[in-house]
């Protein structure tokens, strides 16, 4: 796999990913702080024609984008108790036909369904490497 040298290249990578994703689709985003998880989601949204700001959902924990294709962006960084997801109405989000990104999915303590894709972003001195694996269980 080739190295992604900068945020623009990450956006181009996300645009390629957008071409092959259709709802319903659950994507886990993994990687350290500053790896580029939100940058990937921003690139994905731009590829679908969204021009507005794509804010970090760290504080609100979830941002929703009502495009022809609905996109839901979770960030569980601040989550300390998986029960909080129940309070947020997590189950309601997962009944919709949407493409759902989840940053820091490991903090959900097994409450989340199995993802269709898992993107692991590794930080390297020369840029980023994204490893994608499919893990849907049928």
């Amino acid at each position: 796999m080739s190295i992604i040298p900068n945020p623009d290249a990450m956006a181009a990578f996300a645009a390629d990913l957008a071409k092959s994703c259709h709802a319903p689709c659950l994507i886990f985003l993994e990687g350290e702080l500053g790896a580029g998880k939100t940058t990937l989601v921003r690139g994905f949204l731009r590829a679908l024609g969204y021009r507005g700001p794509v804010k970090s959902p760290t504080y609100a924990m979830v941002e929703t984008y009502e495009l022809p294709q609905k996109i839901i962006h979770f960030d569980l960084y601040r989550l300390t108790d998986p029960m909080e997801l129940e309070e947020m109405g997590l189950r309601d989000y997962f009944t919709e036909a949407a493409i759902i990104f989840v940053e820091w999915p490991e903090r959900a303590g097994g409450i989340l369904p199995n993802p269709d894709l898992r993107c692991y972003i590794e930080i390297l001195p020369e840029g980023r490497k994204v490893e994608i694996s499919t893990c849907a269980q049928h």
Partner: peptide
């Protein structure tokens, strides 16, 4: 005007975490 991505306090907190100062 507003932040197009992270809030300033969030950048403070996350950098503090990277410096080993806890969340």
């Amino acid at each position: 005007g507003e932040s197009v991505d992270d809030a300033a306090g969030e950048a403070f907190d996350k950098t503090a975490r990277l410096l080993g100062l806890g969340y």
